[in-house]
């Protein structure tokens, strides 16, 4: 038990003293997760929206595929993208393997289905009549879409925050595609795995605390947003 308390104390001291190595790791994690969430949202939100409001042949097939992709393990994505980015792979000439960009590519594949399906669910819940009313009130097609999006915005926000939480906590992709390079692609999760391997726990515990704090903050933001939403009604 001592050793847990000791690690915890040393970890808090490390956070307090602004240890540069630790904060660089945190920075890499946050920036990589930010960009992968941003890209996945730019692609996934419109995609989910389209699937929800449009009727087309094969819609159920698309939904089934997306739902299946929710279960993709990170190591499978890691392997798959590795095969493309490796020097002997199709895109090897681009030299992307073992860079933050490679992690972002993998993570976008990971969370795109999440953002798309949850957006789709949020938009589907908005009554069809809502859009029709907007149209009959003289809204243009685009305005009607925006009206629906406005109604569904908290569902979409929740999807994006969940996706961010997923990428910042994942390790398979960051390890296989980023390579855990010190001072370049080392993220919070790969650093924690490494410290455990080294038999040292202080940095790992400190990073664990930061990771949980980030998640807590994201969820507080979400709660606040939803609280406001409730008041407006």
């Amino acid at each position: 038990m001592d050793f847990l308390a000791e690690s915890l104390l040393a970890a808090l001291r490390m956070i307090w003293s602004l240890d540069p190595e630790m904060y660089f790791v945190v920075y890499v994690s946050l920036s990589v997760s930010f960009f992968s969430t941003l890209i996945a949202s730019l692609l996934g939100v419109p995609l989910g929206f389209l699937i929800a409001v449009r009727q087309f042949r094969g819609k159920r097939v698309v939904i089934t595929i997306l739902n299946t992709m929710l279960a993709l393990p990170t190591v499978v994505i890691g392997l798959f993208v590795y095969a493309f980015l490796s020097r002997s792979g199709l895109l090897g000439f681009m030299g992307l393997l073992y860079t933050p960009k490679a992690i972002i590519i993998g993570q976008v594949i990971l969370i795109l289905p999440w953002v798309a399906t949850f957006t789709m669910a949020a938009v589907s819940r908005i009554d069809e009549r809502y859009r029709n009313t907007a149209l009959t009130l003289g809204a243009s097609g685009m305005q009607a879409v925006l009206a629906v999006a406005r109604e569904a915005r908290f569902g979409i926000l929740a999807a994006i925050i969940a996706a961010f939480g997923r990428v910042i906590a994942e390790i398979g992709i960051a390890m296989m595609l980023g390579g855990n390079i010190k001072g370049f692609t080392r993220t919070m999760t790969t650093a924690m795995a490494l410290e455990h391997n080294k038999g040292e726990f202080v940095l790992a515990v400190a990073l664990g605390i930061v990771l949980l704090t980030v998640s807590l903050l994201m969820n507080i933001v979400l709660q606040l947003a939803q609280g406001k939403y409730g008041d407006n009604r």
Binding site: R87, Y98, G179, N180, I181, K182, R186
Partner: peptide
């Protein structure tokens, strides 16, 4: 960091694969 020296914090096999890449 980002130069010619890569400290990857992984096992021997991973390091060999990394060096090949």
């Amino acid at each position: 960091g980002q130069g010619w020296y890569f400290s990857i914090g992984q096992g021997m096999g991973e390091a060999l694969i990394f060096a090949r890449e």
